[in-house]
């Protein structure tokens, strides 16, 4: 038996193709903006080989946006795949089950109470705490033999609570300008971001992704049920905490800098699952790459569609994702719980 046969070939090809798509889309994303730049010029700019103004535009203005799109997509894609594995439910997704909204609430509270003056990291920390509380609560509410419906309802309840508390904060806000700022930011966008935001989110997103990818074999064992997983030496409590923490870090950090970008974690794992043979462990990395590609593409789209004010990224993903969600529910109707 050769070493090559130990790697699942379709998964490997999928990963390479998605990585190539990410690179291509990232390049396209960098060429878009007020100043027209070609792909070659942009790439030289990224590596500091272009003229100073071009390098400045590419590195300071465009690269943060592209990097954030990559990070958000990877965070959402991997979180969706991991949550679906943890909750044994193909409809689990940070946006659908209220984790993103709770992260948003955490961020809004940090903005509202001015905690940000303590440290810039309070914003992502607060968003991650919100996302973590929601994920933990959801797990406690719905993890024990929960049907698909129970889980989604629990998620809807948590999301509804987070949204209403966010509204309350805005309602009580003495500053109308701050309210419109919050509303706009909650819609989700990577526009006009700087390396400051990238630096704020990146460590947490990377740590979150590492935790999620490392949980792969535990998630796969969990597909056999709790008992079988434990009999295979999986420390269930630790594995669950690892996934919840990973999702909280990844989702919270991206929500803190880019608002809520929904449905990516639903669509991407669902489309990729058949390619990787439905194996939860194999799904994580392709979902991260696929999510990154999808968000990059969506962010390119919002800049190409000229409809007066630029469309918000989160609005576009929801417009595409919500019908997909309906279709998924429709397809699952025939299946038990």
């Amino acid at each position: 038996m050769s070493a090559a046969s130990l790697i699942h070939r379709p998964t490997l090809i999928l990963c390479l193709a998605l990585a190539a798509a990410c690179l291509g889309l990232a390049t396209v994303s960098l060429t878009l903006g007020y100043v027209e730049l070609g792909a070659a010029e942009v790439l030289r700019g990224v590596f500091g080989l272009a003229d100073a103004p071009v390098a400045l535009i590419v590195q300071e203005l465009r690269l943060p946006r592209t990097l954030l799109a990559l990070m958000i997509g990877a965070a959402m894609g991997a979180s969706g795949a991991a949550l679906q594995g943890l909750l044994l439910n193909p409809l689990a997704e940070p946006g659908v089950i209220g984790i993103s909204a709770s992260g948003g609430l955490g961020a809004v509270l940090a903005l509202y109470f001015g905690w940000m003056s303590l440290s810039p990291y309070v914003l992502p920390a607060s968003a991650m705490a919100g996302a973590g509380l929601a994920t933990g609560a959801l797990y406690l509410l719905a993890a024990r033999n929960a049907s698909t419906l129970t889980l989604i309802l629990a998620g809807v309840a948590i999301g509804g609570l987070a949204i209403s508390l966010t509204s309350l904060a805005m309602n009580l806000s003495p500053n109308p300008w701050a309210v419109s700022e919050i509303v706009f930011w909650l819609m989700g966008s990577v526009r006009d971001r700087t390396f400051e935001e990238v630096g704020l989110a990146a460590p947490f997103v990377l740590a979150g992704l590492a935790l999620l990818v490392a949980s792969g074999s535990a998630l796969e064992a969990m597909s056999l049920g709790e008992e079988a997983a434990r009999s295979l030496g999986v420390a269930l409590g630790r594995a669950r905490a690892q996934v919840i923490l990973g999702v909280s870090l990844a989702v919270g950090a991206t929500v803190a800098v880019a608002g809520v970008v929904g449905f990516v974690g639903l669509v991407v794992p669902h489309l990729l699952r058949p390619v990787v043979g439905h194996a939860p462990a194999r799904l994580l990395i392709p979902s991260a790459l696929g999510g990154a590609a999808l968000i990059l593409a969506a962010d390119i789209l919002v800049r190409l569609i000229a409809v007066g004010p630029e469309l918000q990224l989160g609005v576009v993903t929801s417009l595409v994702g919500a019908p997909f969600f309906f279709w998924l529910i429709h397809r699952m109707k025939g299946r038990p719980g």
């Binding site: 796969e220 969990m222 056999l224 049920g225 009999s231 043979g277």
Partner: peptide, 28 residues
Amino acid sequence: LPQGHEVNWPISVERLAGLGRLPHRGPL
């Protein structure tokens, strides 16, 4: 070998059987 026949994702039989090797390899 537990009593129920729980398999939550349509993974292949080979992949399913291979899960028995989890205790013998590292998580990654």
